[in-house]
């Protein structure tokens, strides 16, 4: 029985409302959380603006517009249900997609990415809450495989220069393919090295993490377990062979790791429910990421690692239960 039908028949004018308890609500909502994440993305966006200037604005804006339009059209005309584009989730997908592509990506490719993200990644499963894979990452990986050249040619973020025609490699491809010119760690942290739009500055992304933890949008379990795993895993190699390829700090601060750990892996829908599950999920994302980075064909593996673990999330949810009351040992 649809509630819309019901409310037509039963007007609530001057009638007492009766419902089961509780009778108060925290006021939390989906859109509050989504806009909260968007606020947390602001520092990274500002860095992107500073580094890539107008390009960053155009790519981000276009990506958001595409995502919102695709979601609206698919919901309204194909799924025939009330579009919920203003809950902020489509905007978030748009921003995250933009943050995962080079700043000079042609707009038409971006549009294809947005369609893959929203159409395949989200709406084909039934919309927000029902998707198995992170929509923005679906879009990103779709583009990475379909347009490898455009997706891995980054403009040199020569801050202040008038031209951005020169392209350069990312830190990780320096490592992978042993090209000369590896930048210093400070530059990597502050985000003045090559890479996708949003993955420039680890510091800006960490600011976002602190904001989200403070606002209780996410818990620490996923980002910290990913980062810790990456540091420990590469650290073990670094102890034996101290070469830049194994430097845990470079691995932590470069590429999409921060963006992935803080904003992509923590996506509510596609990550586990329980804390235990989150730690398992984070651990494996870290392991897979490092494995791809060290031994895989791609220089970067965060997106693949997250998507892979997204697929395992239902299984993790099935096998992990929260710590129940009464299971704690008596210590009184």
């Amino acid at each position: 029985m649809s509630s819309a039908l019901r409310s037509q028949q039963v007007s609530m004018e001057n009638k007492l409302v009766v419902s089961p308890s509780p009778h108060v609500h925290s006021g939390d909502s989906i859109s509050k959380n989504m806009y909260g994440v968007l606020i947390a993305l602001l520092p990274a966006f500002l860095v992107a603006l500073y580094v890539f200037r107008l390009d960053a604005l155009i790519i981000t804006f276009a990506s958001v517009v595409f995502c919102v339009i695709f979601e609206y059209v698919i919901a309204k005309f194909i799924m025939k249900k009330q579009p919920t584009v203003f809950d902020g989730s489509a905007i978030l997908t748009g921003v995250l997609l933009a943050f995962n592509v080079p700043s000079n990506l042609p707009i038409w490719i971006l549009a294809i990415g947005a369609l893959a993200a929203i159409g395949i990644g989200k709406m084909s499963f039934g919309g927000l809450g029902n998707n198995i894979f992170n929509p923005a990452l679906v879009g990103r990986v779709f583009l990475l495989i379909s347009f490898p050249a455009q997706m891995t040619t980054w403009p040199t973020p020569d801050v202040g220069a008038t031209t951005d025609a020169v392209t350069s490699a990312t830190v990780l491809s320096h490592l992978k393919f042993n090209t000369p010119g590896l930048p210093s760690l400070t530059n990597i942290l502050m985000g003045t090295e090559g890479g996708s739009l949003g993955e420039m500055s680890a510091v800006a992304l960490l600011l976002g993490l602190i904001y989200m933890l403070w606002k209780k949008i996410i818990t620490w379990h996923i980002p910290i377990s990913i980062m810790a795993t990456v540091v420990i895993f590469t650290g073990i190699f670094y102890l034996f062979t101290p070469i830049p390829q194994y430097n845990p700090l470079i691995h932590l601060a470069s590429g999409g790791l921060m963006l992935g750990a803080v904003f992509m892996a923590t996506d509510y829908v596609t990550s586990p429910l329980t804390k235990k599950g989150m730690l398992i999920y984070g651990f494996f994302i870290g392991v897979v990421t490092v494995a791809i980075r060290l031994w895989g064909a791609y220089p970067e593996g965060v997106s693949f690692a997250i998507l892979l673990m997204n697929g395992f999330t239902p299984l993790i949810n099935y096998y992990t239960t929260p710590k129940r009351f009464g299971e704690v040992k008596k210590n009184g």
Partner: peptide, 26 residues
């Protein structure tokens, strides 16, 4: 609706079993 006017507004989950465990009805 004509024969038996509604005297209050039920606002719980849309499920008879839940409503009836709460109260007599609207």
């Amino acid at each position: 609706c004509e024969h038996r006017p509604r005297v209050n507004y039920y606002d719980g989950a849309s499920n008879c079993a839940i409503a009836s465990s709460l109260y007599g009805g609207d």
